[in-house]
Design a protein around this nucleic acid. Structure first.
Lengths: 215, 215
DNA sequence: TTACTATCCGAATCTGTTTCACGTTCTGGA
DNA sequence: TCCAGAACGTGAAACAGATTCGGATAGTAA
């Protein structure tokens, strides 16, 4: 099969969210502005309040221009989350390089903290992730997000601690999903993440992984 | 404050999804049919494919009638999930009565299994829960669902095993969310729930709760 | 400068949601 | 039994927002 697949067997729908790649710099900047506009609007009015017209307006662009680069409205939000995901990947890769990691759980904690940090720092990230008012069709992406994160974690941990890939894949995928669920709760209770719940999440995944990963 | 609150502090928006309570039997039946129609349609064409017109059509009813009882489209789906939640509650309450439960984890397993059963048996339940294509505005309900389930679990377990409520609330809420996240994965991989992942989920929550609940 | 391509634009079109003014069916009480 | 008022039912029409499209405009290479 030629379809790209994530470690745990879920097909990764790598649907390019862009209808047409911006080639000239001016259009690239415009696309940037649309994304920015979309982010701030989600932050302000929630997904339901966001309209393509509004995005275009705030970006100082005509609706038609938006559709020149995005096949539809959700694609804009999707592109936004992809961008955030990229940012996240960069962050953890960087931290892996700069922080001394004794055990795999240090790696897990690092990634966990980075993730929580995203929620606190990146505007609209929480709203898109945990949908204060977001179209659930985005879930397809959310899942991809978790799959992408899982895969990256598996790679990093395998490389750093010499644990075989196939011993990591299922446990990490499960841990990421579990953390995802608990974080969902933590961030609903408190926009900054309820600390008690965050601690529980950390403890939970560490406990679980301890029973699955080599000492 | 008079707003009903779930155990972990999340306000339960008990927004009656009905614009008007059907008082006569004939209308009650029609509302039933609308719900039924909605369920089958979600099953067949996914949430995005469902339109109010389609629901009305299949229910053999005019669109206007739908709006007489539901404030908007999402309310229909919401009512559907509430109904499912009720069904679920009945199921676990029944099983608690009929099955001998030695330890609290037997109770947890029972509830877990019942939940998995719902996904397998109740049409469109999975789709609404894990959104093959569902409007994320439903997430508010999803969360309520988990809160409701948590609360009920806490009650049942407290009563059956004499564990103080306040020792149960946080751990159960966290466990439910974690399970939710992992199940999300299990049911995406396989419509019936990937067994390996289901097993991991069970093991994960049991392991976690073992460190939080009295032996 | 020319030809061609990348961009832009925004009114018009489409699609699906929600309303509303007007018939029909119940129900309880005189 | 008959009537008034409430509960229902209806579907064409009003709306709202997404998406398209025919027609300009700007950038670029030869």
């Amino acid at each position: 099969m030629g379809v790209p697949t994530s470690s745990h067997g879920v097909a990764v729908t790598s649907s390019t969210p862009l209808r047409r790649q911006p080639v000239q710099q001016r259009s690239a900047k415009r696309v940037e502005r649309m994304l920015e506009a979309c982010a701030s609007l989600i932050e302000e009015v929630g997904y339901d309040g966001v309209t393509t017209t509004l995005i275009a307006e705030r970006a100082g662009v005509a609706v038609g221009s938006l559709y020149q680069f995005f096949p539809d409205k959700r694609a804009v939000v999707q592109a936004l989350t992809m961008r955030n995901l990229d940012k996240f990947m960069e962050t953890i890769t960087a931290r892996f390089g700069s922080t001394p990691l004794e055990h795999w759980w240090d790696a897990v904690d690092t990634i966990f903290d980075a993730y929580v940090g995203m929620h606190r720092d990146v505007p609209a990230f929480s709203k898109v992730r945990f949908g204060d008012a977001v179209d659930m069709r985005l879930l397809d992406d959310k899942r991809d997000n978790n799959a992408v994160i899982s895969d990256r974690m598996v790679e990093l941990i395998a490389a750093k601690f010499g644990i075989p890939l196939d011993e990591l894949q299922l446990p990490i995928a499960v841990a990421v999903q579990a953390a995802d669920g608990v974080l969902d709760l933590a961030f609903r209770i408190d926009p900054n993440g309820e600390q008690r719940v965050l601690d529980e999440a950390k403890s939970l995944i560490r406990g679980y992984l301890s029973t699955r990963l080599p000492k």
